[in-house]
């Protein structure tokens, strides 16, 4: 086990360094800089431009800037956002709960529907249900998030009036944000109806963000199950006279889950990427929207810090998924 963890960590370090390099250079390769964008139509004299760039430390040699970025990461300091003049880490952490809440709900939504749907489709292979499900999931997989979000808003919020249009809570509730998780904060607040409002605000963004992972989970579960259902030991189990529920639910599913857990783990990256669009359309105050704003403003520190943090989270989740394999299938741990 120890060796397994060590090998995985050994791969992580170069990956992490690669991410810092990409994050650092990507935002600097975009044309325009924060000072020019701030000045806008009025322009800025070259002297003032140079002075302001120097204030931000952008006059130093590029390698020096990169190493001070790395040095900062080692000390937990990601610099200060140019726009808000607040530490990047703090900016990230105040918005992160909103994204976690949304992504968490989306993945739960996707798994709760995707897993059973995939299992049923595999068991009833070739049935009308199977064909319909695969058709819908292909559509879901190719759904452009922005269009899908607007469509749901226009239908459920504007036309039917069932759900609120955007945001995390009705503007009429003035609750304290102690944890940053709106469901928790609203639940423990004194204001009646706040929790209901928080839940109703989550519905559409959850569906929009969960659609693609749902489609992927359903398809992967189906194919993993199909493969396992054809194995000898499943036939043996059936021949032993076990109930269909035990065969599928315990013997087959456990092995199919290896693939499915990987897929769910990989969805974290998809979710964070999808969150950028979902948050923009639903005015959801998470890190996705913040990253987009920061990129448009060429807020170098916020962008490079944000990318490194997000990438680290994705890497951590993947590492966690690797350990989960071990738990589900101990052979993986002992293979080396």
């Amino acid at each position: 086990m120890f060796r397994f963890i060590l090998t995985k960590l050994g791969v992580l370090i170069p990956t992490f360094l690669g991410v810092t390099l990409i994050a650092f250079s990507f935002i600097r390769m975009l044309p325009g800089d924060p000072i020019e964008l701030l000045a806008g139509e009025r322009g800025v004299t070259p002297e003032r431009h140079a002075e302001l760039m120097a204030n931000l430390g952008f006059d130093r040699p590029i390698w020096e800037q990169y190493f001070s970025f790395l040095w900062g990461i080692l000390h937990g300091d990601l610099g200060v956002s140019f726009m808000s003049r607040q530490p990047v880490l703090e900016e990230f952490l105040t918005r992160f709960p909103a994204t976690v809440e949304l992504a968490g709900c989306a993945i739960i939504f996707a798994a709760l529907i995707g897993l059973p749907a995939g299992i049923i489709a595999a068991v009833k292979r070739g049935s009308a249900f199977d064909h319909t499900l695969m058709g819908i999931s292909l559509t879901g997989y190719s759904m452009p998030i922005f269009w899908w979000g607007l469509l749901l808003i226009i239908l459920f919020s504007a036309t039917l009036g069932w759900t609120p249009v955007s945001g995390r809570l009705s503007a009429l509730f003035w609750i304290e944000q102690d944890t940053g998780f709106m469901l928790i904060d609203a639940f423990f607040s004194d204001e009646e109806g706040a929790f209901k409002s928080a839940v109703s605000h989550l519905i559409l963004p959850t569906i929009v963000l969960g659609t693609i992972p749902l489609a992927i989970i359903a398809r992967q579960t189906r194919s993993a199950m199909l493969e396992v259902l054809g194995e000898d030991y499943v036939r043996t189990a059936r021949a032993k006279g076990l109930s269909s529920f035990r065969v599928i639910g315990i013997h087959a599913l456990r092995n199919a889950l290896i693939t499915v857990v990987t897929v769910i783990g990989l969805q974290v990256g998809v979710l964070l990427a999808g969150a950028i669009l979902t948050e923009t359309i639903f005015s959801w105050p998470g890190i996705g929207k913040w990253m987009i704003d920061s990129i448009f403003r060429r807020d170098y520190f916020a962008v490079q810090g944000g990318i490194v943090l997000i990438a680290s989270i994705v890497m951590m989740v993947n590492l966690f998924v690797d350990f989960m394999y071990g738990l589900i299938n101990p052979r993986i741990l002992h293979r080396r």
Partner: peptide
Amino acid sequence: MIKKGLLATAAFASMLAMGSVS
């Protein structure tokens, strides 16, 4: 199943009183 899920969600949403601006 997906359809059912969507319908259930929508029905749940309709039960929630919508706070509109008063």
